[in-house]
Amino acid sequence: MKKTTIAYIVFFAVMALIPFVSNNLWITIATTFCIFSVVALSVDIVLGRAGMFDMGHAVFFGLGAYATAIMNVHFEMNILMAIQVAILLPAIVAIVISSPIVHLRGDYLLVATVGFNIVFVQMLRNNFLGLTGGDDGIFGVDAEALGLYLDDPMIVYFMAFTLLLLTLLVIRNLEKSKAGRALHYVQEDPIASESIGINTRFYRVFSFSLGAAIAGLAGFIFTIQYTAVSPSAFDFMTSVMFFAIVLVGGKASIPGILAGTFIMFVLPEVFKGFETYRYFVFGIAMIVSMVLRPQGIFPAKYGKLPKYVTEDK
């Protein structure tokens, strides 16, 4: 067996064992790690694999979460009924809002996605259509389904863990599929890939909507975990965090992104006493890690290609 496979098996075994060896507090943190890893991986599909500067991904995460909360609280539907909506709605919105902007050059796209994020949060705060509950968001989500309280820490953990496994599976398949290769070409050189018959625009929108669907599903579990949603969880700063996780960890690098999420969301829980210093230290860490390893902590390796093929110009 390859070393990588062994490493993954060890990692998943440890993750699966967590709930049996620790208390609720740590199960909660591990759940958060799984959910946020999934979101970071979904950002990576757009940012790391399609090469589009997406700094507004919290929109899709938030759409999934809010769709779940709204269907459950306002329309009193069973929480499981929200799954399809939490996947489809963000995917459709992603297609609608990304279509007119995917042709923009890097930084302009970044600014446009930031703009969408801010408009989205303002809609949430203004109690859009009387559904989003204003600044407090929505609480009192009733996560009872199939005779279980789904917001029980153990159950949420396994849902989140399963989602993480599923996401990794999707990404593995994406890497090996026609679409994944197309995205890679589009990122490396849009014009050359256009000239060999890849529909650049289609694959860019596709990556947005795939990333959005995964983030939306993560939002679904996020809502169950907290039984509440509020605008501040999906604001522009959240998008910035995920953006930074992907780049600090390494674009298109799964271990890098998992490590990034671990550093950003789990370590602060371990060093609770230093909470006020948290972002100060992050700031320094972000600069230092970029200066020392501009490609990320664990840069992705592309098979056995000779170096001159993979190297950035």
Binding site: V14, V21, F262
Partner: peptide, 15 residues
């Protein structure tokens, strides 16, 4: 991929 192992150990220990 030793990093992943280290990472998992870190998770376990902190738990």
């Amino acid at each position: 991929m030793r990093k992943l192992v280290i990472l998992s150990l870190a998770v376990l220990i902190s738990a």
